[in-house]
């Protein structure tokens, strides 16, 4: 063994900026910050409902009616759809390959099933919320 082994210098704090794959990995990981924000939003909505007064609930809804929130929700929708939903569905056949008897289910089929489920569940949520 050499006395002075070469150690490739790697930044501890910005290593993911060195390759496009690491960058998209970090973007995918960062979607969880949005999940955390929406958890807090839903929890504050539930707190308003738990108070049992319409005023608190209306205040919660009104607090969202701000340009900053419009921009935030618009950004979140695009960022999350690209780096979480689409990325996650695309990875599904690699993370959970399905075998039926001797054959493996084609990856494309698993991805397509996720997109179908996405469509159905989104429609269900819109229906519950009264959007459609």
């Amino acid at each position: 063994m050499s006395r002075r082994p070469y150690i490739r210098p790697v930044s501890r704090t910005a290593w993911y900026m060195t390759h496009v794959r690491y960058k998209s990995y970090m973007l995918r990981e960062l979607t969880c910050v949005l999940v955390a924000v929406y958890c807090v939003l839903i929890l504050s909505g539930l707190a308003a409902l738990a108070s049992g007064t319409q005023t608190r609930w209306d205040e919660f809804l009104a607090s969202q009616q701000h340009l900053a929130w419009i921009l935030f929700h618009g950004f979140a929708l695009v960022f999350f759809t690209v780096y979480q939903s689409i990325a996650w569905f695309g990875l599904a056949p690699k993370a959970m390959p399905l075998q039926m008897g001797d054959r493996t289910v084609p990856g494309g089929l698993i991805v397509a099933a996720h997109y179908m489920l996405w469509l159905v569940l989104s429609a269900a949520l819109f229906w519950i919320a009264g959007v459609i």
Partner: peptide, 18 residues
């Protein structure tokens, strides 16, 4: 979250625009 959150975000967007 991948399945439900985009729709949730649309609902919040609707609330925020009134």
């Amino acid at each position: 979250t991948a399945l439900l959150f985009p729709a949730l975000m649309v609902i919040f967007l609707l609330i925020s625009v009134g």
